[in-house]
Nucleic acid binder design. Structure first.
Lengths: 246, 246
DNA sequence: GAGTGGTCTAGACCACATA
DNA sequence: ATGTGGTCTAGACCACTCT
Protein backbone atom coordinates (compact mmCIF):
# COMPACT_ATOMS: atom_id res chain seq x y z
CA UNK A 1 0.00 0.00 0.00
CA UNK A 2 2.56 2.53 1.04
CA UNK A 3 5.22 0.75 -0.90
CA UNK A 4 5.81 2.36 -4.26
CA UNK A 5 5.60 -0.87 -6.18
CA UNK A 6 2.60 0.51 -8.04
CA UNK A 7 4.32 3.87 -8.40
CA UNK A 8 4.83 3.55 -12.12
CA UNK A 9 1.13 3.13 -12.65
CA UNK A 10 0.14 6.26 -10.77
CA UNK A 11 0.10 9.81 -12.02
CA UNK A 12 0.50 11.13 -15.49
CA UNK A 13 3.15 9.07 -17.25
CA UNK A 14 4.15 12.10 -19.27
CA UNK A 15 5.28 13.98 -16.17
CA UNK A 16 9.02 14.04 -15.43
CA UNK A 17 10.26 11.33 -13.14
CA UNK A 18 11.31 13.72 -10.39
CA UNK A 19 7.83 15.23 -10.28
CA UNK A 20 6.12 11.87 -9.93
CA UNK A 21 8.58 10.69 -7.31
CA UNK A 22 8.13 13.95 -5.42
CA UNK A 23 4.35 13.64 -5.41
CA UNK A 24 4.59 10.08 -4.19
CA UNK A 25 7.00 10.98 -1.40
CA UNK A 26 4.71 13.79 -0.26
CA UNK A 27 1.86 11.29 -0.17
CA UNK A 28 3.89 8.82 1.88
CA UNK A 29 5.02 11.48 4.34
CA UNK A 30 1.45 12.63 4.73
CA UNK A 31 0.33 9.02 5.32
CA UNK A 32 2.66 9.03 8.32
CA UNK A 33 4.78 6.28 6.88
CA UNK A 34 7.74 7.64 8.83
CA UNK A 35 7.66 9.14 12.30
CA UNK A 36 9.65 12.31 12.77
CA UNK A 37 12.11 10.49 15.02
CA UNK A 38 13.40 7.82 12.67
CA UNK A 39 15.08 8.65 9.38
CA UNK A 40 13.70 7.81 5.94
CA UNK A 41 15.52 5.05 4.07
CA UNK A 42 18.89 6.24 2.73
CA UNK A 43 19.13 7.71 -0.74
CA UNK A 44 20.43 4.50 -2.26
CA UNK A 45 17.51 2.43 -0.94
CA UNK A 46 14.85 4.96 -1.98
CA UNK A 47 16.37 5.31 -5.41
CA UNK A 48 16.25 1.55 -5.83
CA UNK A 49 12.64 1.42 -4.63
CA UNK A 50 11.64 3.89 -7.30
CA UNK A 51 13.93 2.47 -9.91
CA UNK A 52 15.63 5.82 -10.52
CA UNK A 53 19.17 7.02 -10.18
CA UNK A 54 20.48 8.43 -6.94
CA UNK A 55 21.05 11.80 -8.59
CA UNK A 56 17.42 12.18 -9.51
CA UNK A 57 16.30 11.12 -6.06
CA UNK A 58 18.71 13.59 -4.48
CA UNK A 59 17.11 16.37 -6.46
CA UNK A 60 13.69 15.44 -5.09
CA UNK A 61 14.86 15.20 -1.50
CA UNK A 62 16.71 18.51 -1.77
CA UNK A 63 13.59 20.23 -3.06
CA UNK A 64 11.42 18.77 -0.31
CA UNK A 65 14.03 19.89 2.19
CA UNK A 66 14.04 23.42 0.77
CA UNK A 67 10.25 23.47 0.95
CA UNK A 68 10.35 22.55 4.61
CA UNK A 69 8.71 19.12 4.43
CA UNK A 70 11.92 17.25 5.18
CA UNK A 71 15.14 17.89 7.06
CA UNK A 72 18.46 16.47 5.89
CA UNK A 73 21.48 16.02 8.11
CA UNK A 74 24.81 14.90 6.77
CA UNK A 75 25.81 11.63 8.39
CA UNK A 76 22.47 11.14 10.17
CA UNK A 77 19.79 10.85 7.54
CA UNK A 78 16.64 12.45 6.16
CA UNK A 79 13.76 13.17 8.54
CA UNK A 80 10.18 14.36 8.38
CA UNK A 81 10.11 17.90 9.69
CA UNK A 82 8.12 18.46 12.83
CA UNK A 83 5.66 21.31 13.24
CA UNK A 84 7.86 24.14 14.46
CA UNK A 85 5.24 26.79 14.35
CA UNK A 86 6.28 28.47 17.53
CA UNK A 87 8.95 30.16 15.47
CA UNK A 88 7.25 30.83 12.18
CA UNK A 89 3.54 31.26 12.83
CA UNK A 90 3.51 32.66 16.31
CA UNK A 91 5.69 35.61 15.61
CA UNK A 92 3.19 38.31 16.33
CA UNK A 93 1.77 39.94 19.38
CA UNK A 94 5.08 40.32 21.10
CA UNK A 95 3.97 42.09 24.22
CA UNK A 96 6.20 44.67 25.83
CA UNK A 97 8.65 43.14 28.28
CA UNK A 98 7.69 39.58 27.50
CA UNK A 99 10.45 37.85 25.62
CA UNK A 100 10.43 34.58 23.75
CA UNK A 101 8.07 32.77 26.09
CA UNK A 102 4.86 31.17 24.97
CA UNK A 103 1.77 32.74 26.47
CA UNK A 104 -0.63 30.92 28.73
CA UNK A 105 -4.00 29.88 27.43
CA UNK A 106 -7.42 29.19 28.86
CA UNK A 107 -10.05 27.33 26.84
CA UNK A 108 -13.36 28.97 27.62
CA UNK A 109 -15.63 26.77 25.53
CA UNK A 110 -15.43 23.68 23.36
CA UNK A 111 -18.49 22.56 21.39
CA UNK A 112 -19.38 20.35 18.50
CA UNK A 113 -21.78 22.41 16.44
CA UNK A 114 -22.68 23.32 12.90
CA UNK A 115 -20.26 25.89 11.57
CA UNK A 116 -21.59 29.05 9.94
CA UNK A 117 -21.92 28.59 6.21
CA UNK A 118 -18.90 30.65 5.23
CA UNK A 119 -16.63 28.86 7.68
CA UNK A 120 -18.01 25.45 6.73
CA UNK A 121 -17.15 26.24 3.14
CA UNK A 122 -13.56 27.12 4.00
CA UNK A 123 -13.19 23.93 6.03
CA UNK A 124 -14.66 21.92 3.16
CA UNK A 125 -17.21 20.23 5.37
CA UNK A 126 -20.73 19.81 4.09
CA UNK A 127 -23.19 22.49 5.08
CA UNK A 128 -24.88 20.21 7.58
CA UNK A 129 -21.68 18.64 8.90
CA UNK A 130 -20.45 19.39 12.36
CA UNK A 131 -17.29 21.17 13.35
CA UNK A 132 -15.39 21.57 16.58
CA UNK A 133 -15.52 25.12 17.88
CA UNK A 134 -13.27 26.37 20.66
CA UNK A 135 -13.04 29.74 22.29
CA UNK A 136 -9.69 30.41 23.84
CA UNK A 137 -8.17 33.25 25.81
CA UNK A 138 -4.42 33.81 25.72
CA UNK A 139 -2.62 35.54 28.55
CA UNK A 140 0.74 36.88 29.58
CA UNK A 141 1.13 36.51 33.33
CA UNK A 142 -2.63 36.13 33.80
CA UNK A 143 -3.28 39.28 31.78
CA UNK A 144 -5.50 38.49 28.76
CA UNK A 145 -4.34 39.94 25.45
CA UNK A 146 -5.82 37.75 22.73
CA UNK A 147 -9.18 36.09 22.17
CA UNK A 148 -9.43 33.24 19.67
CA UNK A 149 -12.30 31.52 17.87
CA UNK A 150 -11.05 28.23 16.48
CA UNK A 151 -12.92 25.93 14.08
CA UNK A 152 -11.76 22.40 13.24
CA UNK A 153 -13.35 20.05 10.69
CA UNK A 154 -15.04 16.86 11.94
CA UNK A 155 -14.78 13.94 11.95
CA UNK A 156 -11.16 14.54 10.98
CA UNK A 157 -10.32 16.21 14.30
CA UNK A 158 -12.57 13.99 16.43
CA UNK A 159 -9.58 13.05 18.60
CA UNK A 160 -9.19 16.68 19.60
CA UNK A 161 -12.90 16.99 20.32
CA UNK A 162 -12.73 13.92 22.55
CA UNK A 163 -9.82 15.24 24.56
CA UNK A 164 -10.37 17.00 27.85
CA UNK A 165 -9.81 20.71 27.07
CA UNK A 166 -7.76 20.98 30.25
CA UNK A 167 -5.26 18.45 28.94
CA UNK A 168 -4.57 20.36 25.74
CA UNK A 169 -1.27 22.17 25.89
CA UNK A 170 -0.60 25.84 25.42
CA UNK A 171 0.19 25.24 21.79
CA UNK A 172 -2.42 23.56 19.63
CA UNK A 173 -0.37 22.60 16.59
CA UNK A 174 1.70 19.99 18.44
CA UNK A 175 -1.61 18.58 19.71
CA UNK A 176 -2.85 18.31 16.14
CA UNK A 177 0.28 16.39 15.24
CA UNK A 178 0.17 13.92 18.12
CA UNK A 179 -3.59 13.38 18.27
CA UNK A 180 -4.60 13.62 14.61
CA UNK A 181 -1.32 13.22 12.77
CA UNK A 182 -1.74 16.58 11.10
CA UNK A 183 1.31 18.75 10.49
CA UNK A 184 0.48 22.35 9.69
CA UNK A 185 2.68 23.45 6.85
CA UNK A 186 1.36 26.78 5.65
CA UNK A 187 -1.19 29.41 6.50
CA UNK A 188 -2.81 32.56 5.23
CA UNK A 189 -3.52 35.44 7.55
CA UNK A 190 -5.71 38.43 6.92
CA UNK A 191 -5.53 41.42 9.23
CA UNK A 192 -8.10 44.13 9.78
CA UNK A 193 -9.23 46.44 12.56
CA UNK A 194 -12.61 46.17 14.30
CA UNK A 195 -14.25 47.41 17.47
CA UNK A 196 -14.73 45.37 20.60
CA UNK A 197 -18.12 43.85 21.24
CA UNK A 198 -19.36 43.75 24.83
CA UNK A 199 -18.45 40.05 25.00
CA UNK A 200 -14.93 40.74 23.76
CA UNK A 201 -14.51 43.83 25.93
CA UNK A 202 -15.49 41.80 28.97
CA UNK A 203 -12.95 39.07 28.29
CA UNK A 204 -10.12 41.32 27.15
CA UNK A 205 -10.76 43.76 29.97
CA UNK A 206 -11.19 46.80 27.78
CA UNK A 207 -13.88 49.30 26.82
CA UNK A 208 -16.66 48.49 24.40
CA UNK A 209 -15.88 49.71 20.85
CA UNK A 210 -12.18 49.98 21.64
CA UNK A 211 -10.19 49.17 18.48
CA UNK A 212 -9.20 45.54 18.13
CA UNK A 213 -6.99 43.88 15.56
CA UNK A 214 -8.73 40.94 13.91
CA UNK A 215 -6.63 38.16 12.39
CA UNK A 216 -8.26 35.50 10.23
CA UNK A 217 -5.94 32.56 9.83
CA UNK A 218 -6.54 29.63 7.50
CA UNK A 219 -4.03 26.89 8.30
CA UNK A 220 -3.23 24.11 5.85
CA UNK A 221 -1.30 20.86 5.76
CA UNK A 222 1.63 20.44 3.42
CA UNK A 223 -0.75 19.02 0.88
CA UNK A 224 -3.02 22.06 0.99
CA UNK A 225 -5.97 20.66 2.92
CA UNK A 226 -7.53 23.23 5.23
CA UNK A 227 -7.08 21.98 8.79
CA UNK A 228 -8.07 24.99 10.86
CA UNK A 229 -9.96 28.27 10.63
CA UNK A 230 -9.12 30.76 13.35
CA UNK A 231 -10.22 34.28 14.20
CA UNK A 232 -8.07 36.12 16.72
CA UNK A 233 -8.85 39.43 18.36
CA UNK A 234 -6.28 41.50 20.22
CA UNK A 235 -6.02 44.98 21.65
CA UNK A 236 -4.82 47.33 18.94
CA UNK A 237 -2.80 49.35 21.42
CA UNK A 238 -0.48 46.47 22.22
CA UNK A 239 -0.41 45.04 18.70
CA UNK A 240 2.76 44.44 16.77
CA UNK A 241 3.08 42.15 13.75
CA UNK A 242 6.16 41.39 11.69
CA UNK A 243 6.30 39.95 8.20
CA UNK A 244 9.10 39.03 5.87
CA UNK A 245 8.38 39.38 2.17
CA UNK A 246 10.54 37.67 -0.41
CA UNK B 1 37.08 43.40 -13.39
CA UNK B 2 33.71 41.81 -13.90
CA UNK B 3 35.31 38.89 -15.62
CA UNK B 4 35.79 36.00 -13.22
CA UNK B 5 39.41 35.46 -14.16
CA UNK B 6 40.39 36.31 -10.60
CA UNK B 7 37.53 34.25 -9.25
CA UNK B 8 39.72 31.54 -7.84
CA UNK B 9 41.55 34.06 -5.70
CA UNK B 10 38.40 35.49 -4.14
CA UNK B 11 36.46 34.15 -1.21
CA UNK B 12 37.35 31.41 1.20
CA UNK B 13 39.04 28.65 -0.72
CA UNK B 14 37.59 26.08 1.68
CA UNK B 15 34.03 26.93 0.64
CA UNK B 16 32.35 24.58 -1.84
CA UNK B 17 32.69 25.55 -5.46
CA UNK B 18 28.99 26.12 -5.95
CA UNK B 19 28.90 28.59 -3.06
CA UNK B 20 31.80 30.63 -4.40
CA UNK B 21 30.38 30.63 -7.92
CA UNK B 22 27.00 31.65 -6.58
CA UNK B 23 28.43 34.56 -4.60
CA UNK B 24 30.35 35.72 -7.64
CA UNK B 25 27.30 35.54 -9.88
CA UNK B 26 25.25 37.55 -7.37
CA UNK B 27 28.02 40.15 -7.37
CA UNK B 28 28.06 40.32 -11.16
CA UNK B 29 24.28 40.61 -11.38
CA UNK B 30 24.35 43.35 -8.79
CA UNK B 31 27.08 45.14 -10.74
CA UNK B 32 24.59 45.31 -13.63
CA UNK B 33 26.82 43.24 -15.86
CA UNK B 34 23.71 42.05 -17.69
CA UNK B 35 20.60 44.05 -18.45
CA UNK B 36 17.30 42.34 -17.84
CA UNK B 37 16.61 42.23 -21.58
CA UNK B 38 19.56 40.20 -22.79
CA UNK B 39 20.30 36.70 -21.54
CA UNK B 40 23.33 35.69 -19.52
CA UNK B 41 25.90 33.57 -21.36
CA UNK B 42 24.72 29.99 -21.86
CA UNK B 43 25.49 27.34 -19.27
CA UNK B 44 28.37 25.91 -21.25
CA UNK B 45 30.10 29.29 -21.58
CA UNK B 46 29.65 30.23 -17.93
CA UNK B 47 30.87 26.83 -16.78
CA UNK B 48 33.97 27.25 -18.88
CA UNK B 49 34.54 30.76 -17.52
CA UNK B 50 34.52 29.43 -13.99
CA UNK B 51 36.34 26.25 -14.84
CA UNK B 52 33.63 24.05 -13.39
CA UNK B 53 31.39 21.39 -14.82
CA UNK B 54 28.05 22.25 -16.36
CA UNK B 55 26.26 20.23 -13.69
CA UNK B 56 27.67 22.33 -10.89
CA UNK B 57 26.85 25.54 -12.72
CA UNK B 58 23.33 24.31 -13.35
CA UNK B 59 22.86 23.84 -9.63
CA UNK B 60 23.89 27.43 -8.97
CA UNK B 61 21.64 28.87 -11.66
CA UNK B 62 18.70 26.77 -10.44
CA UNK B 63 19.14 28.03 -6.90
CA UNK B 64 19.38 31.64 -8.01
CA UNK B 65 16.25 31.08 -10.09
CA UNK B 66 14.40 29.60 -7.11
CA UNK B 67 15.48 32.57 -5.01
CA UNK B 68 14.05 34.97 -7.55
CA UNK B 69 17.27 36.63 -8.68
CA UNK B 70 17.22 35.01 -12.11
CA UNK B 71 14.62 33.67 -14.51
CA UNK B 72 15.32 30.68 -16.71
CA UNK B 73 13.42 29.89 -19.90
CA UNK B 74 13.94 26.73 -21.84
CA UNK B 75 15.14 27.52 -25.33
CA UNK B 76 15.57 31.24 -24.62
CA UNK B 77 18.17 31.63 -21.91
CA UNK B 78 18.78 32.87 -18.38
CA UNK B 79 17.78 36.43 -17.49
CA UNK B 80 18.10 38.85 -14.58
CA UNK B 81 14.71 39.11 -12.97
CA UNK B 82 13.06 42.49 -13.01
CA UNK B 83 11.43 44.10 -9.99
CA UNK B 84 7.93 42.68 -9.99
CA UNK B 85 6.87 44.13 -6.69
CA UNK B 86 3.46 45.18 -7.78
CA UNK B 87 2.43 41.59 -7.23
CA UNK B 88 4.35 40.60 -4.14
CA UNK B 89 4.91 43.70 -2.05
CA UNK B 90 1.90 45.77 -2.84
CA UNK B 91 -0.65 43.23 -1.80
CA UNK B 92 -2.20 45.20 1.02
CA UNK B 93 -4.67 47.99 1.32
CA UNK B 94 -7.07 46.55 -1.16
CA UNK B 95 -9.81 49.10 -0.94
CA UNK B 96 -13.40 48.04 -1.30
CA UNK B 97 -14.55 48.01 -4.90
CA UNK B 98 -11.17 48.86 -6.30
CA UNK B 99 -9.72 45.88 -8.08
CA UNK B 100 -6.20 45.23 -9.27
CA UNK B 101 -5.44 48.82 -10.22
CA UNK B 102 -2.48 50.73 -8.86
CA UNK B 103 -3.44 53.75 -6.81
CA UNK B 104 -2.56 57.27 -7.75
CA UNK B 105 0.14 59.11 -5.85
CA UNK B 106 1.02 62.70 -5.03
CA UNK B 107 4.46 63.60 -3.73
CA UNK B 108 3.94 66.32 -1.14
CA UNK B 109 7.55 66.97 -0.23
CA UNK B 110 11.04 65.90 -1.28
CA UNK B 111 14.03 67.05 0.74
CA UNK B 112 17.65 66.18 1.26
CA UNK B 113 18.12 66.29 5.00
CA UNK B 114 19.78 64.51 7.89
CA UNK B 115 17.79 61.45 8.83
CA UNK B 116 16.81 60.89 12.45
CA UNK B 117 19.40 58.77 14.22
CA UNK B 118 17.39 55.56 14.29
CA UNK B 119 16.53 55.75 10.59
CA UNK B 120 20.10 56.69 9.67
CA UNK B 121 21.25 53.58 11.47
CA UNK B 122 18.87 51.35 9.56
CA UNK B 123 19.97 52.90 6.25
CA UNK B 124 23.60 52.41 7.23
CA UNK B 125 24.49 56.03 6.49
CA UNK B 126 26.76 57.86 8.88
CA UNK B 127 25.05 59.92 11.55
CA UNK B 128 25.89 63.15 9.78
CA UNK B 129 25.20 61.89 6.26
CA UNK B 130 22.24 63.12 4.31
CA UNK B 131 19.24 61.15 3.17
CA UNK B 132 16.44 61.79 0.73
CA UNK B 133 13.10 62.17 2.45
CA UNK B 134 9.81 62.11 0.58
CA UNK B 135 6.29 62.49 1.84
CA UNK B 136 3.77 60.90 -0.43
CA UNK B 137 -0.01 60.61 -0.47
CA UNK B 138 -1.67 57.68 -2.19
CA UNK B 139 -5.19 57.92 -3.52
CA UNK B 140 -7.95 55.89 -5.09
CA UNK B 141 -9.97 58.10 -7.41
CA UNK B 142 -8.65 61.26 -5.75
CA UNK B 143 -9.60 59.94 -2.30
CA UNK B 144 -6.53 59.74 -0.04
CA UNK B 145 -6.11 56.50 1.88
CA UNK B 146 -2.41 56.17 2.65
CA UNK B 147 0.31 58.56 3.79
CA UNK B 148 3.94 57.56 3.32
CA UNK B 149 7.24 58.78 4.76
CA UNK B 150 10.05 57.46 2.60
CA UNK B 151 13.77 57.64 3.38
CA UNK B 152 16.48 56.79 0.84
CA UNK B 153 20.25 56.68 1.50
CA UNK B 154 22.48 59.23 -0.22
CA UNK B 155 24.58 59.52 -2.24
CA UNK B 156 23.43 56.10 -3.48
CA UNK B 157 20.01 57.38 -4.53
CA UNK B 158 21.20 60.79 -5.73
CA UNK B 159 19.64 60.14 -9.15
CA UNK B 160 16.23 59.94 -7.52
CA UNK B 161 16.87 63.10 -5.54
CA UNK B 162 17.82 64.92 -8.74
CA UNK B 163 14.68 63.85 -10.56
CA UNK B 164 11.68 66.11 -10.74
CA UNK B 165 9.17 64.63 -8.27
CA UNK B 166 6.45 65.13 -10.85
CA UNK B 167 8.21 62.82 -13.29
CA UNK B 168 8.38 59.93 -10.84
CA UNK B 169 5.82 57.28 -11.63
CA UNK B 170 3.12 55.90 -9.41
CA UNK B 171 5.37 53.04 -8.45
CA UNK B 172 8.75 53.84 -6.97
CA UNK B 173 10.51 50.49 -7.25
CA UNK B 174 10.67 50.57 -11.04
CA UNK B 175 12.14 54.07 -10.69
CA UNK B 176 14.82 52.72 -8.38
CA UNK B 177 15.67 50.11 -10.99
CA UNK B 178 15.91 52.45 -13.96
CA UNK B 179 17.52 55.44 -12.21
CA UNK B 180 19.79 53.77 -9.66
CA UNK B 181 20.02 50.19 -10.89
CA UNK B 182 18.61 48.89 -7.62
CA UNK B 183 16.31 45.88 -7.66
CA UNK B 184 14.34 45.42 -4.45
CA UNK B 185 14.39 41.74 -3.59
CA UNK B 186 13.05 41.42 -0.07
CA UNK B 187 11.47 43.46 2.67
CA UNK B 188 10.41 43.33 6.28
CA UNK B 189 7.19 44.94 7.40
CA UNK B 190 6.07 45.67 10.93
CA UNK B 191 2.46 46.59 11.59
CA UNK B 192 1.02 48.43 14.57
CA UNK B 193 -1.89 50.73 15.34
CA UNK B 194 -1.52 54.42 16.21
CA UNK B 195 -3.70 57.51 16.41
CA UNK B 196 -3.80 60.21 13.78
CA UNK B 197 -1.85 63.40 14.43
CA UNK B 198 -3.39 66.65 13.27
CA UNK B 199 -1.06 66.67 10.27
CA UNK B 200 -2.09 63.14 9.31
CA UNK B 201 -5.77 63.78 10.01
CA UNK B 202 -5.64 66.77 7.73
CA UNK B 203 -4.11 64.89 4.82
CA UNK B 204 -6.11 61.69 5.24
CA UNK B 205 -9.31 63.62 5.77
CA UNK B 206 -10.18 62.04 9.12
CA UNK B 207 -10.58 63.03 12.76
CA UNK B 208 -7.60 63.65 15.04
CA UNK B 209 -6.77 60.58 17.15
CA UNK B 210 -8.69 58.30 14.81
CA UNK B 211 -6.98 54.89 14.72
CA UNK B 212 -4.41 54.47 11.96
CA UNK B 213 -2.48 51.41 10.88
CA UNK B 214 1.25 52.09 10.79
CA UNK B 215 3.47 49.97 8.55
CA UNK B 216 7.24 50.18 8.83
CA UNK B 217 8.87 48.67 5.80
CA UNK B 218 12.59 48.04 5.40
CA UNK B 219 13.32 47.13 1.79
CA UNK B 220 16.50 45.38 0.74
CA UNK B 221 18.33 44.42 -2.43
CA UNK B 222 18.97 40.79 -3.24
CA UNK B 223 22.31 41.13 -1.51
CA UNK B 224 20.75 42.36 1.69
CA UNK B 225 21.68 46.03 1.54
CA UNK B 226 18.99 48.30 2.95
CA UNK B 227 17.74 50.48 0.11
CA UNK B 228 14.64 52.09 1.60
CA UNK B 229 13.00 52.82 4.93
CA UNK B 230 9.30 53.59 4.70
CA UNK B 231 6.57 54.41 7.18
CA UNK B 232 3.01 54.16 5.87
CA UNK B 233 -0.12 55.31 7.66
CA UNK B 234 -3.63 54.31 6.62
CA UNK B 235 -7.12 54.51 8.01
CA UNK B 236 -7.73 51.47 10.20
CA UNK B 237 -11.35 51.28 9.14
CA UNK B 238 -10.47 50.52 5.52
CA UNK B 239 -7.42 48.43 6.30
CA UNK B 240 -6.96 44.88 5.08
CA UNK B 241 -3.65 43.04 4.91
CA UNK B 242 -2.99 39.52 3.68
CA UNK B 243 0.04 37.37 4.43
CA UNK B 244 1.08 33.91 3.40
CA UNK B 245 3.19 31.99 5.89
CA UNK B 246 5.20 28.98 4.81
C1' DG C 1 18.85 23.62 -38.02
C1' DA C 2 21.26 25.61 -34.30
C1' DG C 3 21.27 26.82 -29.69
C1' DT C 4 19.16 27.03 -25.34
C1' DG C 5 17.74 25.03 -20.88
C1' DG C 6 15.42 20.42 -18.78
C1' DT C 7 15.88 15.54 -17.53
C1' DC C 8 18.37 11.60 -16.13
C1' DT C 9 22.19 8.65 -15.42
C1' DA C 10 26.63 6.59 -13.28
C1' DG C 11 30.15 7.06 -10.49
C1' DA C 12 34.18 9.14 -7.73
C1' DC C 13 35.45 11.34 -3.72
C1' DC C 14 34.67 14.04 0.64
C1' DA C 15 32.62 15.41 5.33
C1' DC C 16 30.05 14.23 9.12
C1' DA C 17 27.71 11.27 12.74
C1' DT C 18 27.51 7.19 15.27
C1' DA C 19 29.04 3.06 17.30
C1' DA D 1 34.83 1.34 10.61
C1' DT D 2 30.54 1.97 8.63
C1' DG D 3 26.91 4.43 6.72
C1' DT D 4 24.90 8.72 5.85
C1' DG D 5 24.32 12.89 3.03
C1' DG D 6 27.34 16.69 0.30
C1' DT D 7 30.18 17.90 -3.70
C1' DC D 8 31.55 17.51 -8.36
C1' DT D 9 32.14 15.52 -12.79
C1' DA D 10 31.03 13.85 -17.70
C1' DG D 11 27.94 12.91 -20.85
C1' DA D 12 23.50 11.29 -23.24
C1' DC D 13 19.15 12.57 -24.70
C1' DC D 14 14.89 15.53 -24.82
C1' DA D 15 11.93 19.90 -25.28
C1' DC D 16 11.55 24.39 -26.44
C1' DT D 17 12.56 28.89 -29.10
C1' DC D 18 14.06 31.42 -32.70
C1' DT D 19 15.46 32.29 -37.57
Amino acid sequence: MAHPSDFTTRGDQRLPLHVRVKDDLVRRVRANEWSSDAPLPPESALAEQYGISVGTLRRVLSELSAEGLLERHQGRGTFVRRATFQHSLFRFFRMQGSSGQTPGSRILASDTIEAPADIAQVLHVGSRSKALHMERLRLWDDTPFLLEDIWLPLPWFQAVADADPQTLGNLLYPEYETRVGVIIGAATEELSVTQATSHQANLLNCAIAEPLVKIIRIARTHTGDVAEYRESYGLASSFRYQVEIN
